[in-house]
Design a protein around this nucleic acid. Structure first.
Lengths: 228, 228
DNA sequence: CGCGCTTTTGAGATAACTCAATACAGGTGG
DNA sequence: CCACCTGTATTGAGTTATCTCAAAAGCGCG
């Protein structure tokens, strides 16, 4: 199983992250929350990076644009993820909002120095290190998986991270456009569509509408994420 | 231009990295250097991560293996790069030596807490953040570039980071096998070979032997890295 | 000299792309 | 309330880049 989004829900230990999390929640009443509405930008590539942001709710999209104008979706950020790690003093991606939500803004220095708040510092550091691992997982996917495998992996992750179980099946939303999924997986829109269609026609998933997926056969979906 | 190796030589500022570097060099006389010979492993996936390592000389290879046994080369680490960022308490890649060299081993706690040596702490943190950016760059490459563009990009980075200028041309070594390059770029060996051959036949580069590249036309090589 | 490993070249198969048409959904104005 | 319009998603047909399989060439080494 691959984790393809920015902060993994791996089965590995995450330092004493859980512990950090509890403490941060207590503090959060005093923290600068920020409400976000769809379409809004949290930051742009090249902006000075004054903060890193922890997603509390909603869905963010991280993108970069190449010289030739084509766009790459680097990650979708879900609750629990941390975005905005600086490169030098600057943000190196665009970040905009796909689903209304809320983030907590931490001053960059909370990441860079543990002097004021060691617990928060460690927490952000964990997030950065986990980010590295998550991206390495994503590498494997971009480099080594076929189109159907990529799409199945993506659906698996969305199901695990955002799905709800109604007693029968897991259901989840795909709030992003097909073109976003394609740009994330390094595919074309059409290829993504066809892969989804194939999963639907073979009874692995069902679509209530284009953005709402029901996992009918979790085992076969997991299977479809694996090469050979 | 894309940076595809683990620590970029971007044109962006890198905090006060240069400054940190100078200080670390002074300290390094007392630091636990470690000599590495080709074939040796620095660490394995799943090992407890007690240290992070700064490469002083030589060339390291970071790899992961998938369920099905296929291997992905995550990065090649050159002097200046830092490897071994932990995931939880564990290393999440294999790391072995392709070219004899020397690394400096820093205790993991130097990365996790700035209390004992704030300068070193910041330096390692910079390295981790740069790593994230470098990997995002690598994404773009894996997802959005054609095979010839990937190979040209790879040669460009190797030329810039390891090349020597003899007054006429830039010359550099490719100490890794073609299969490593292929696994790094998400291609097959044959495709890598053909791309190199095409660059050679069109006079952009020359090969003194299979591992030694001479850049004949730097401008056209840079051009070949760009999709239109 | 011959053996094993790596690299290179060749020919055919195929996965994914491109271009084009159709279907669908949500919003707007008549 | 319906017809239209725009943007998104889906399906189809043909093209092509890359992969696969196979063979040859190069190189180091016993």
């Amino acid at each position: 199983m691959y984790v393809t989004l920015s902060n993994p829900s791996h089965d590995q230990p995450e330092h004493d992250f859980a512990n950090c999390s509890a403490i941060a929640k207590i503090q959060s009443q005093a923290l600068p929350k920020r409400l976000l509405v769809a379409g809004q930008h949290l930051f742009h590539e090249g902006d000075e990076a004054h903060h890193v942001y922890e997603v509390r709710s909603g869905l963010l999209r991280l993108t970069r644009v190449l010289e030739n104008g084509s766009r790459q979706v680097i990650a979708f950020a879900l609750p629990g993820d941390v975005v905005g790690f600086p490169y030098g003093d600057l943000h190196h991606t665009d970040c905009d909002v796909l689903v209304d939500g809320e983030v907590i803004a931490y001053a960059r220095r909370a990441l860079e120095s543990g002097s004021s708040d060691p617990v928060l510092h460690k927490r952000l550091l964990c997030a950065a290190l986990n980010e590295i691992t998550a991206m390495q997982d994503h590498f494997m996917m971009l480099a080594r998986k076929s189109a159907p495998e990529k799409v199945a992996s993506f659906l698996m992750v969305m199901a695990e991270r955002t799905g709800t179980f109604n007693g029968q099946h897991v259901r989840f939303e795909l709030p992003m456009k097909r073109s976003d999924i394609a740009d994330f997986l390094g595919l074309t829109i059409e290829t993504v569509c066809r892969a989804i269609t194939r999963l639907r026609k073979s009874g692995v998933i069902a679509l209530e509408d284009a953005q709402t997926v029901v996992v009918l056969d979790h085992y076969r979906l997991a299977d479809a994420t694996l090469s050979d």
